[in-house]
Simulated scan of single mutants.
Amino acid sequence: MNKPVFDSFWDFYPYYLKEHSHRVCRRLHFVGSALVLIELAWIVLTANWGWLWLLPLTGYGFAWVGHFFFEKNKPATFQYPLYSLMGDWVMFWQMLTGRTNKFRGE
């Protein structure tokens, strides 16, 4: 199967949202992203730079549980790493600001 080609992030984002249609998957992404921000703040405030390795483990750990156990699909990160990372933060911001009308079934 050929992977879709996207000309821009905003062309990719509807595909990203479709790959995150399960509510629990989105919530796990949100929790992982929030924890990443908390961890990053702690690392910066305490100058414990050796803990930076924890950030991707936390963020992707929560997200991948959502994909493998709830969405039952492969994370978009494997095919579109940069766009997927951008999508994580756009979706996080939309959820944080209550713009969930962008999601189906909400």
Score class of each variant (00 low, 15 high):
Lys3His: 14
Lys3Ser: 15
Pro4Met: 10
Val5Thr: 14
Phe6Glu: 06
Asp7Leu: 08
Asp7Gly: 14
Ser8Gly: 07
Trp10Leu: 12
Trp10Ser: 14
Trp10Asn: 12
Phe12Thr: 07
Phe12Pro: 06
Tyr13Asn: 11
Tyr13Arg: 05
Tyr15Asp: 03
Tyr16Ser: 09
Leu17Cys: 15
Lys18Asp: 14
Glu19Cys: 08
Glu19Gln: 12
His20Ile: 00
Ser21Tyr: 10
His22Met: 06
His22Val: 12
Arg23Trp: 11
Arg23Met: 07
Val24Ser: 08
Val24Pro: 00
Arg26Val: 04
Leu28Arg: 01
His29Val: 02
Val31Arg: 07
Ser33Lys: 08
Ser33Arg: 04
Ala34Gly: 13
Ala34Val: 11
Leu35Met: 14
Leu35Val: 06
Val36Asn: 08
Leu37Arg: 08
Leu37Trp: 13
Glu39Gly: 11
Leu40Ser: 15
Ala41Leu: 14
Val44Tyr: 13
Leu45Cys: 13
Leu45Ala: 15
Thr46Phe: 04
Thr46Arg: 09
Trp49Ala: 10
Gly50Arg: 07
Gly50Pro: 10
Gly50Cys: 11
Gly50Tyr: 08
Gly50Met: 12
Trp51Pro: 01
Leu52Phe: 15
Leu52Pro: 12
Leu52Val: 15
Pro56Ala: 13
Gly59Asp: 12
Gly59Val: 05
Tyr60Leu: 10
Tyr60Cys: 04
Tyr60His: 10
Gly61Lys: 07
Ala63Glu: 00
Trp64Pro: 00
Val65Asn: 02
Val65Arg: 04
Gly66His: 06
His67Thr: 03
Phe69Pro: 00
Phe70Asp: 05
Phe70Cys: 09
Glu71Ile: 02
Asn73Ala: 14
Asn73Phe: 00
Ala76Tyr: 01
Phe78Ile: 08
Phe78Thr: 03
Gln79Thr: 13
Tyr80Glu: 10
Pro81Met: 12
Tyr83Arg: 06
Ser84Met: 04
Leu85Ile: 10
Leu85Pro: 05
Leu85Tyr: 12
Gly87Val: 03
Asp88Arg: 06
Asp88Ala: 07
Val90Arg: 01
Val90Asp: 02
Met91Gly: 09
Phe92Thr: 02
Phe92Glu: 04
Trp93Asp: 02
Thr100Pro: 00
Arg104Asp: 15
Gly105Trp: 05
Glu106Met: 01
